[in-house]
Nucleic acid binder design. Sequence first.
DNA 1: ACATGTTTATGCGATC
DNA 2: GATCGCATAAACATGT
Length: 457
Amino acid sequence: MLSTSHTDPWPEGGVDIGKVIKEEVIASPQTDQSGSLHRLHSVSDSLDDSLTSLQWLQEFSILGASAGNPSCHPHSHIFSCSDAPQSPLAGDSASMGMPLTPGKPTAASFCRGPALGPMPSLVPHGHCPDEVDYKTNPYIKPPYSYATLICMAMQASKKTKITLSCIYKWITDNFCYFRHADPTWQNSIRHNLSLNKCFIKVPRQKDEPGKGGFWKIDPLYAERLLNGAYKKRRMPPVQINPALQHRLGMRPQTILPTDSTRTLSISPESHQLLKEFEEATGGDQNWDPRLAEVTMLSCWESGKGTKRKRGYSHKRAPRRPNSPLLGMDEQEDLSSLRGNFDWDALLDSALNGELSLNEGSPLSPIPGDEDLMIRGTHISLLEAPGGVAESHVLTETQRSLEGNYDEETFLATAFLQSPWSEEDEGNLCSSNVGIEQLFDLGDSFGGDLSTKIESIL
DNA sequence: ACATGTTTATGCGATC
DNA sequence: GATCGCATAAACATGT
């Protein structure tokens, strides 16, 4: 039962978020982007720190309001407003007359222009660095951490678990940069999987053929989404494939955010959204589930989580023994893997994890759970897609939660325990939606979210 | 041999 | 300046 009292992450007597969102939605940036953003920031500033973790959500919804303008898609900076090919390879400009030269990222500035020729258009320094189609642009390294990319791949798969090769595949399919980059990024992916507590290894069963195990997201990462116990980081400089830039006769350069990028585009906010997600997936290596309640409270107060020692001395906590439930075979049809990162579902889940647990999104809530009462609002839980409820065995952590952990927190995080329907297991590594659709939140949140939040609140 | 997974080390930018 | 978060590199072990 998610009632308010002391575990309520929302600030008391604070801001009517639904109202704020509605107001901001009305003040469409379409007419005055800079002004609207100004208002956005000022409103955001008016929120206390405890709302930080959801600020992106507000902003996303606000930004999504501009979705009415087809040329101002909330993620147009990521996956261009223009008609990006469904098949990422089809738009692989780097593969057109260009060898797959590995390269290591440096920094430079490119931008996909309106008329996408054989090569993505080069954008003068300081100009619209946000409008980059990472799916087709082989030059610019996606500004997402590896953890984020892994999460994206996992989410896109809509499976409970995903193989390393599937992660590779999804990333290369959806981020052209990595198709041409030095394969050492795969090392980094593995490193991240091993090191980042967000990711849990699910060993194969003995009779399961194939190499390696599976990976899934640790549900505890939801806590980080919830408690806001992460720091905000600035956007890293845009990085570019040096091999490819060399072919362009470019000199490495770094794009730094400019005022123009802040006022001309909604993208900084959208970027921030993703950054915060990746921060949420980052390793809070000292998180103790039994302290979750306290952590949530304190973090909502301070906006800071626990600290860790410098460097990678932060060992992962011993892996909670994973249930052998996941013995279902994966389909190694990597060729069918396409971007299907369901941001909508993720955000929906984040929202619902924060406020409730509902929706039959791929990130489905507690299997077979009953309706929830949150802030006095009765919320009905829907079945997972296909009507198949998850039946994952609880991790040791969550089992302990059942005993010691506040039920609210448990409920708030359990939706990640079985993020994807087992039913989808048979389609591992297969997804049919282009990644640009994964970011198609404008429609989902533009008019939807405020209503959703309002109804919840 | 290769893929996968773990671990250690180091560097850098951002933040406190 | 210390700390943090992350990327990168590499060595090593294990499994297929």
